[in-house]
Design a protein around this nucleic acid. Structure first.
Length: 278
DNA sequence: AGTAGACCTGTTAC
DNA sequence: GGTAACAGGTCTA
């Protein structure tokens, strides 16, 4: 087993893993948290500023948690100094990081996430895994396995209108060259959005979730119902009486990006957490 | 360019 | 105990 010591407020593992970025991590009874990145199983536990790893190597964990890419504590101090709303959200929940997820799982996770509470999203994804691979809690099924799924089968498992989208999106993804989704990592956000929104069921909000949570697009701000409300009341008051049209989506996201800069997506997650999860 | 409704379903609030 | 509103939206007319 490996232990890492982290600076204070650099990471709150529990809050990070259950903040609505990903939906299939499990709490074990002995305090360990387990999940998958691609086919690799991770086993993590945090006590104060110590992070313990089991069944996995340090490099994988650092890559997944993005520990060497952003000194979040320092960044949060600067954001707090310039924005009272962020300051209060961070004070209540410091250490909320963004993760580098497997784009394949992230793609299908947020495809299922339309107007569903986090608990239901978890259930739907567990059902997808069980139907595709027989293992509800195992690694996320490969595209090949997902291609065997039928809409009727997924509807029977509670996916609702998302069932058709999952089946159709998997088929469309299969037409792309191998590794296509991974190849979007690091591309400009606008390019990622224009590559993903042609998929059935993926509009701008879900494209931004996939970009932010798995493709390193740190400035992406997925404007959902909560972030829209925060934007209207705090960062773009001129939108107070507006509705969330595509043009206003852009204005809201831009307001966050002006306020928080190239890591606006990270700030967004802490604000989202206060509104939607906590 | 912006608005209105439909779309699945489990949970929570009266 | 039934009913309505809501949930990390997208698509079509």
């Amino acid at each position: 087993m490996i232990s890492l010591t982290l600076p204070e407020h650099e990471l709150d593992l529990e809050a990070t893993l259950f903040s609505g970025q990903l939906f299939r991590w499990q709490r074990q009874d002995d305090g360990w948290l387990t999940g998958y990145v691609g086919t690799q199983r991770l086993c993590l536990r945090q006590t104060e500023s110590t992070l313990e790893l089991a069944e996995t190597d340090e490099a994988t964990v650092r890559h997944f948690l993005r520990l060497d890419e952003l000194a979040l504590g320092e960044q949060a101090r600067r954001w707090s100094a310039s924005d009272p709303l962020f300051a209060s959200a961070w004070k209540r929940q410091p250490g909320l990081r963004l993760l580098r997820q497997d784009p394949h799982e992230c793609f299908f996770s947020f495809l299922c996430a339309s107007v569903a509470p986090i608990a239901r999203i978890s259930k739907m994804l567990q059902a997808v895994c069980e139907e595709a691979s027989g293992e509800p809690l195992g690694p996320f099924p490969s595209l090949e396995a997902l291609l065997t799924l039928r809409e009727s089968q997924l509807r029977a498992r509670g996916l609702g209108f998302r069932a058709e989208r999952v089946v159709a999106a998997a088929r469309k993804l299969a037409e792309k060259p191998d590794g296509w989704l991974d190849s979007l990592r690091g591309k400009p956000l606008a390019e990622i959005e224009s590559e993903l929104t042609p998929f059935p069921g993926i509009g701008r909000k879900i494209a931004d979730c996939i970009a932010l949570f798995s493709l390193d697009a740190d400035a992406a701000v997925p404007v959902d119902t909560h972030i829209w409300r925060i934007a209207k009341t705090h960062y773009a008051p001129e939108l107070r009486d507006a509705s969330l049209t595509p043009a206003n989506y852009e204005r809201a996201a831009s307001a966050f990006q002006r306020k928080f800069g190239p890591y606006a997506g990270w700030a967004q997650q802490t604000l989202f957490y206060q509104q939607a999860v906590k």
